[in-house]
Computed example of a mutant assay.
Amino acid sequence: MFEFSLKTIPDSLRKEIHDILSDVVEAVIEERKQENDLPFMLSKAQMAKHIFNVSPQTLDAHVINRKDFPKFKAGERILFPRDMVLEWIRKNLDVMADIPSNQGGK
C-alpha cells in the first residue's frame, strides 16, 4: 500500500497534488480493468487490436515469431495467454533503446 502525507504543504498545492494523484490512480485502475476484461487466451486479432494497437501483420513481422514470445497451440490455432503477453511486454519495454534506428537510411 502507498501512503503519503501533505501536512506541510499549503492547502492550494495540497489539493492540486491530491487531484493529480487521484487522476493517476484512476487511470491505473481503468487500465487494469480493461486488461482483465480481455479473455484469458487471445487470438492474434484480439491481441493486435486491444494490446499492441497494431495490425495482425505487424505482429507477425515483429513480435509473434520471437522465440521468447508466449504462445499456445490448440490444434491448428495459435492462441496467446493474456497475462503472459502483458508480462512479456513489461519485461521487454526497454528493448527499444538497444535497437538501432533506421532514420534517414542510416
Rank of each mutant, 00 (worst) to 15 (best):
L42M: 02
T8E: 15
R14I: 03
I17Y: 09
Q103L: 13
V28P: 02
G104K: 01
D83G: 02
V28E: 15
M96I: 14
V85P: 00
E31I: 09
P39Y: 03
A27G: 05
D68F: 05
P56L: 01
M41Y: 07
V24S: 09
I64R: 05
N36L: 12
P10G: 10
D19C: 13
S43Q: 02
L38V: 02
I89V: 10
E26C: 05
I20H: 08
L42S: 00
R66Y: 02
K15C: 09
I20S: 11
N36Y: 06
M1D: 14
K44I: 01
V54F: 04
G104D: 06
I89T: 02
D68P: 01
D23Q: 15
D37E: 15
N65L: 03
G105R: 05
I99E: 00
K33H: 10
L59F: 00
E26L: 07
L42N: 00
K15W: 11
Q57M: 12
L38M: 06
K15N: 13
F80H: 05
A27N: 09
S43I: 00
A27D: 11
V54G: 04
I20K: 11
K71Y: 04
I20V: 13
L79K: 07
R66F: 02
Q34T: 04
A27K: 09
G105Q: 08
I78C: 10
F80W: 03
G104T: 02
Q57C: 07
M96Q: 08
N36S: 11
R90S: 12
V28F: 10
I17N: 04
V63A: 03
I20M: 13
T58L: 09
V28N: 10
K33C: 05
Q57H: 11
S5E: 15
D94G: 08
D60N: 13
D68N: 07
F40N: 14
K49Y: 05
A61T: 11
E3A: 12
D23G: 15
N36D: 14
A74Y: 08
K7V: 11
L42Q: 00
Q34G: 00
G104M: 04
V54N: 08
K106V: 15
K7N: 12
N53W: 10
K33E: 15
K7C: 08
S5P: 04
R14Q: 11
V24W: 10
S43K: 03
S55N: 01
H18A: 15
H62R: 14
E30T: 06
D19G: 09
F40M: 14
H62D: 12
D83N: 13
A61P: 00
P81W: 08
D11G: 06
K15Q: 14
V63C: 03
M1E: 15
V63Q: 05
L38H: 03
L38W: 03
I20F: 11
K71L: 03
D60T: 08
E76W: 10
D11Y: 09
P70Y: 06
K15P: 01
A97N: 11
P81G: 04
R90M: 07
K106T: 14
K67F: 04
K67C: 04
S55W: 01
T8M: 10
Q46A: 01
A45I: 04
R32M: 12
V25S: 12
M84A: 14
F69M: 06
E31K: 07
Q34S: 08
D37Q: 13
K67P: 00
S22I: 12
M96Y: 05
R32Y: 11
F80A: 02
L21D: 08
F40A: 15
F40S: 15
E30K: 07
V28R: 08
R14L: 06
D11S: 13
P70N: 08
T58V: 12
